[in-house]
Design a binder for these strands. Structure first.
Length: 261
DNA sequence: AGTACCACCTGACGGC
DNA sequence: TGCCGTCAGGTGGTAC
């Protein structure tokens, strides 16, 4: 579930497995993941280069190379990266393989092909051009207050809008609003400072906790909504039956008792 | 500006 | 067993 915490885990994983290793070869097994570049071009571009460092902004993962370009990963609704020894069996839905000179391969996996891989000149420039909002993990309280000024729609839509705030997806937006005890349909302009402080603090805690638990919902605290985010399950706090509604076409789970409108 | 809907894809699941 | 509709965590485009 590649939202901010998941992508942060991928970043840590790449930092641990893939930096400063010479890329011997690149194999694209499904070109539909490529964005704005051909399989041949990405191969010739990466070959012989090394990854120098990583940068995550929202759900995007950028890898700086020792060339004048960055590799850019987006994971869509299903996707991850994994490193294997050359002779290891690689998983289904592996769409791109980066083979290192040291005998390992980095694999980009994407079952539904909704993710994208590309080359960008500069990550910061890309973020600007895409109009991405500030990163949810790094944003300061002052900036957080500002981004909701003059907003009128529902708080959940705003939290999930990558141009407002980068990194929150459907699941974590639900979790944050659940922890803050705010109904997802609440209009932003009906929230006061006290509410925003609560949302901000819960957001930071949820992100930190999720990353600490390696974005694995099974390890999340019992007080979290995420592991119970299924039809007919109950709120871990009030034991009321969870409700689900559609907001902007996405299913939103909440507790009608803890999060009244 | 906000929302609603469609499209992009594959696979899992429930109903019949 | 199998067919079919619906749904799933992402984004982007269009139309109202």
């Amino acid at each position: 579930m590649p939202e901010l915490p998941d992508v942060e885990i991928f970043k840590q994983y790449l930092d641990a497995t893939s930096l400063h290793k010479t890329i011997a070869d690149v194999q694209v097994t499904d070109g539909r993941i490529l964005h704005g570049i051909s399989a041949q071009k990405i191969q010739s571009k990466l070959k012989g280069h090394k990854m120098q460092g990583t940068l995550r902004h929202g759900k995007y993962l950028f890898i700086q190379t020792d060339g004048k370009f960055w590799l850019c990963f987006h994971f869509g609704m299903t996707g991850n990266v994994k490193c294997f020894k050359n002779q290891d069996h690689i998983p289904d839905y592996s769409r791109m393989l980066i083979r290192y000179a040291n005998g390992y391969r980095l694999v980009y996996v994407s079952q539904r092909l909704l993710g994208k891989v590309g080359i960008v000149k500069d990550a910061h420039q890309f973020i600007k051009k895409k109009n991405l909002g500030p990163d949810a993990k790094k944003i300061s309280w002052n900036r957080f207050q500002e981004i909701f000024e003059n907003k009128k729609g529902s708080i959940k839509s705003a939290l999930m809008d990558q141009k407002v705030l980068a990194g929150m997806g459907n699941l974590y937006a639900d979790e944050i609003l659940y922890q803050a005890r705010i109904h997802p349909k609440t209009a932003v302009n009906r929230l006061d400072e006290r509410h925003f402080i609560k949302i901000f603090n819960e957001m930071k805690t949820v992100i930190k906790t999720a990353i600490q638990k390696r974005a694995d919902p099974e390890q999340f605290p019992g007080s979290y909504l995420l592991p119970h985010r299924r039809k007919d399950e109950r709120c871990p706090r009030s034991h009321s039956k969870l409700k689900h509604i559609k907001i902007n076409g996405r299913t939103s789970y909440f507790c009608p008792r803890c999060q009244p409108l």
